[in-house]
Each structure stands twice: as C-alpha cells, then as structure tokens.
Nucleic acid binder design. Structure first.
Lengths: 349, 349
DNA sequence: GTTAGCACTCTTTACCTTCGAGTGCTAATC
DNA sequence: GATTAGCACTCGAAGGTAAAGAGTGCTAAC
C-alpha cells in the first residue's frame, strides 16, 4: 500500500496530537481539524490502513490510535519541521553558557542543565574523549626529599598531575633530565599512542644513568595517562520524568531511574554513538530497558578536534522537531564557545 | 506516667516488628512472643498508655500501632544494641576499600557503594573539607610564550593546578622569583587563611619589580584556592528506595529523589553536621522534605586532620542498631586506610 | 492487676454497574 | 468509486456496594 498525501497528513496530525496530550487520538478529534476536512468514518478507514502498515497501534479496541516507533521514525526522517528557538530560549542558553568565564567543566554542566530545563527531559553531557589529545609538555618537580610531582600538559590545555613517591634519592639534575627525555619522546604523540607504543625502550641508556628514577616515574606516568582518558558524565533533570504521564507508573519510573543510575554503561553507550545529531527511537535501541525511550545525542567539538557528547533521553513520545533544534543550537553555541576560548584556559580540577 | 520495664519491652518489640515488616503491629501478634507472656488485652492497655505518652501512633482505629519518632529516638538512645558485623560483611568492606591501591577519591566512592549495598539504603560520602589543609609549595611553570601553569601542593598531598594565560611577557627568572615569593608567604597557611588574609600586600615591592606578572597570577591563585575547597559528593544506591514499602507511593518516591537531586543543598547540610556518628530522626530534621526520613552520618579523618563525611538516608523505619554499627566499622576502616597511606599518594584527577 | 468477650471501626478487596469514547462494519449518498 | 451516516459493539475508567479481616476500646469477670 502507498502512503498517500492524505495518509501522511493524518499521520502527522496523530503524532502532533499524541505528542502534545499523551492520549490516544480518535477519529472524531482529527476530523474537527481544519486541515483534515473529512468525516470521522473516512479518517477511520485511513487509520485502519495506517495500522495495517505498522504506523499506528491500538492500546485496546475502543481507544484511539497511537503512533508506533515506525511512525516516529518516518516523522523524524521526513515530516518534522525544525523549530526556530524563541528569543527567550536563546537568551537563557547564552546566559548560562557564558556565566562561567573559563571553566570548561562548569560550562558543560551548565549546557546539560539548560538543555534539561528547556526540553523538560533528562539531559546529559559527556566531556570530550581525550584519546586524541596531544601531549605537549611533561615535567617533574621536586616537593619533598622523597616526593616529586609529575605534571603532564596536553595541547587541549588540560593539565594533569600526580604526586609520585620516590623509592630512591633523586637529584634536581636527574629530574630535569628525565623531564626533558620524556617530553622529547612523548611530545606530539596522542595519549592513546603514548599508551600503546611503549616508548620507554627508546631511552633505556638514560634510564640506566638515572639509576631507577624512571622506574618510579614511568608506572605513574602511564597511570596518569589512563586517568586522562576518563570522561565525566553530567546528568540533569532526572526528576523531570515524574512529570511525564508515561512514567506515572512506579515500576516504569523505577526502571528508568535504574537505567540512568548505571553511569558506566551509559557513558560507554554514549561515547560510542556516531557524531552529529543521532536519534534512536524505542525499539531501535538495542538495550531491553530502553525499548520505551528515545535518545537524542549530538557531538560538540573543542578546538575543532576533541569530541564530546550531549543529549537527552525521554519517552518515545517527545517533541523531536523542537528537541533536535534545541540541541543543534546548543552544540553550535558550544562549538563557538570552545573555539573562541582557543584552548589553554581550561582548568584541571 | 512512668515507662515501666514492661512498657519498654513492649515498645522494643513493636519497634523490632515494625522495622522488620513495615506493618502496624497488633496486640495479638505481640502476645504470641515468648518474652511478652501477657494477654492481648493487657498489651492493648499498655499500648494505649504508650500512645498517650507519644511513643506510638495509630494510622487508623482498626490498625495496629506504629512507633513514633519519639520512640525511635528512645530506641536509638537507650534500647538498641550494636550488632557485630558478620565475617562476610567485614570481608566485603575490606575487599572493596583496598581494591583501589592509592586513589583517594575512588576509595571514598567505594566506601559509599559498599555502605549502600550492605544496608540496602541510599548512601553518600563527602570528600574532606579542605579549608584546614595547609599549603606546602607553590610553583609556576613555563609552558608557552604566553601560558604558564600554576601549581599548588598542600600537606594532604593534594596537587592542584591551573593554566594561566599571561598578558605580559615573562622570563623564567621572574617566574622563579614569584614562585618563591608566593611559597614563602603562603607556606604553612591553611587554605582558608590564605583566602581571607590578603597577603599580596606583603610583597608589593617584588610585584613592582615583576611588572604585572603577579597581576596575572594572583587572581588565578585565589580562584584555584577556592576550587580546592570544593568537596565532592558521591551517592550510591539511590534506587534502593524503590524496594522500601514506604516509597511504593509514586509521589513519595518522587519527593525523595527530588530531595537527593539537589546536590548543593545536600552537600551543605552534610558538611555542617557535627562530627562523630549523628542520627537525626524524622521530624528532628529541620527540612520539610525530610520529615519522613532518618539521616545517619559519621565523619572520617584523613591523616588525623581533614574531616570527611559518610552516611545513609532512608525511612525513619530503619535498622538503627545495625546501620550505625556498619557505619562505625566502616569509618574506623577508612580512618586506618588514610592513616597508613600517610598522605602524599593521592591523586588530583 | 489481668483477662475474656464483644461491639465497633476502618481498610482492603472483589464485584457490579454505568458511562463514555471510539471502533468496525454496512448501507446509503455524493 | 470514494465518502459518509448510522449503529451495534468493545473496552476501560469511575463509582458504589458488600463482605472479609484485622485490630481496637470498653466492660465485666477473674
């Protein structure tokens, strides 16, 4: 069967109404709409067709129709319209993103919180994956007789450090030498390169000269690099789901919150999603517990390179057009913010 | 009216039963207990007395009795018994706390998670308040032509840093000089002292010599000190409340989760609680939204000095004896862990 | 002081009825 | 041939009633 112009119009109207009210939509309601000037009976026939084609379902015989995941997919691909954000919304976003002058993590956190406020959904933001971040500078600083601080600076401006307990005495010259050797060997390498290619072999001769200094430092260096790969997950508006009729059932609310409590799994899932704005609807999600949810994610770029993620999660019944427009606007804004700051000003908390 | 021996026994039995079953306790059930060898009628009379005295309440005429907050308070103060932890529980705690060799924050996080697992309640842990942490060492390191890294090391072993954008050219000698001047002026001061006493006036002459260098660095220094005061709140087992009958009502579960979502307020409240094991029951909590909850917190010490908090939150109907014993054991364990590590090995993520 | 007995209260659960929204089908209409 | 009016039918939501069960408070007896 073909999807006639009229069927599309009806489907669009059903989706629009259902998204707004969360109530199954009946033929009478639709026939009252000016753009659908047909009798309820005609519309019922069309709806029966749409149901047969898999775009609509029936909670029970005497209820109206509800869009299926397939219908939402069609809607997202072809029917939905982008929505220009209101002046007010734009103002809120601008205000929140720039209220914190130079703290990268805070800006990300605020982006998530403003997103959940405007969409009334649960939002999250992931700080950028650092595996492609390039090492710039490595230094060892004396603190105690038996403690030095290892410091690693990357191109993105991130500074990481670790206090290292020394098992052997050291001299300032040795520290200097090791710092320079390490910088020489690792500068320009990405973190993931540094972690996989064990460059330590390259400066074996020096190591011998430094009598065990490197043996204290290198494991800590590797450990710190690993830590630098960790991303942070921010989540905001978790309690927004309590205002969504789909979750007025305790067991549903429970499984939603339980799903979002598993931060590691969630982080992994988000990090693996493709770049750009990605919408996955209900059953399109591989996870059992997400069959009733839609997930919209987008990626933002820091300095045009490192990639972070931001997005929302909610019931399949959501305002896809509006939400994707908001996320698009927000990521554009983030990209600009992190371009202007041009790296080097973020802070390692 | 006096609280006779028998009344106390009855009250204790009611609390015990109610805590276990979450059902109001009737006179018949009590009279069946071997330690209460009285007829239901006798027990009813005593219960009526206890109700008059404010230790029991009645959900409705034909229901059994439920302990009041006042009863729980009496129980916590006088009736409850400490419970020796099982071998298994001790093992779990030991295993989890020491699985992470030297990462302070991870240890705290694991402490919270093991606490929620053993108690089946929602737990939280707060990293230590750093205001009394003593500054040890301040350094400025050249990175770029226009970027230096400010590094602050404290006695507790915490290393903080911040990339500072320089508006004027600098020389290595100037950096060295400023580092030394700052270390000289701030070493031995606590962070809160450093923040309140504006010592900058003391080295004004040097500042002039360094032509604006300090003007770039000092605001960042202050900002970083402020950041060092931030504590982290870890929360675990949020979804445990869904297994508690008291929260089988959606609106109750909702307000519980909403309360715990307000992390700033919660952090502030927790940080302000006295040291030692503190139990606040229901109405003893000043906040409206916590009238149905009990909060048990304890403090742990790092290096015998810095104080962090850990605890649980749950319904007033909780196993006070068991939970306080667990928390006590756990904090003892934490105190030992952080004494043995003797500072200097933690990591600044 | 303790207890047996009994009327009373109140919640919970099940069951029934009614109401209304909406459908699907058939036959009439444009 | 597409559209529409008409109508029987289905199902869930809401409200009302009744019975069951748990527990109390009181009185009078022990």
């Amino acid at each position: 069967m073909e999807l006639s112009e009229r069927k599309l119009k009806i489907l669009q109207a059903i989706i629009g109404d259902y998204v707004r009210t969360a109530e199954p939509v009946g033929s009478r309601t639709l026939s009252k709409k000016p753009e659908l000037d047909y009798s309820p009976a005609t519309i019922r026939n069309e709806m029966a067709d749409l149901e047969e084609m898999g775009y609509l379902t029936h909670p029970h015989t005497s209820a109206g129709r509800v869009p299926s995941d397939k219908a939402y997919r069609l809607y997202v691909n072809a029917l939905m319209e982008k929505k220009e954000l209101s002046k007010e919304e734009k103002n809120i976003i601008a205000e929140r993103l720039h209220s914190t002058t130079d703290e990268f993590e805070k800006t990300i956190e605020h982006a998530a919180s403003v997103l959940s406020e405007i969409t009334n959904l649960t939002s999250f933001a992931l700080t950028p994956k650092k595996s492609e971040d390039v090492l710039k500078f490595i230094n060892l600083l004396p603190v105690d007789e038996d403690t030095v601080v290892l410091m690693i600076v990357s191109e993105s401006g991130k500074v990481s450090n670790k206090a290292v307990h020394m098992s052997v005495p050291y001299t300032d010259e040795n520290l200097q030498l090791l710092s320079k050797t390490m910088t020489y060997n690792y500068k320009g390498k990405t973190i993931s390169q540094a972690l996989t290619n064990n460059i330590i072999a390259n400066f074996e001769t020096d190591i011998v000269a430094m009598s065990g200094l490197a043996e204290d430092v290198m494991p800590n260096f590797m450990k710190t690099l690993e830590d630098m790969l960790n991303v942070n997950l921010y989540m905001e508006g978790l309690t927004n789901i309590f205002d969504i009729p789909e979750y007025s059932d305790l067991s549903k609310a429970r499984s939603f919150i339980e799903m979002l409590s598993q931060k590691e799994e969630l982080t992994k899932k988000l990090i693996e999603r493709d770049d750009g704005i990605i919408v996955t609807i209900g059953e399109e999600n591989p996870e059992d517990i997400m069959q009733d949810c839609s997930l919209i994610t987008a990626s933002y770029h820091v300095d045009g390179k490192l990639v972070g993620k931001i997005g929302v999660i909610g019931p399949t019944r959501m305002k896809y057009g509006e939400v994707t427009s908001i996320i698009e606007y927000l990521t554009d804004n983030l990209n600009n913010t992190f371009k202007l700051e041009s790296g080097g000003n973020e802070e390692d908390e």
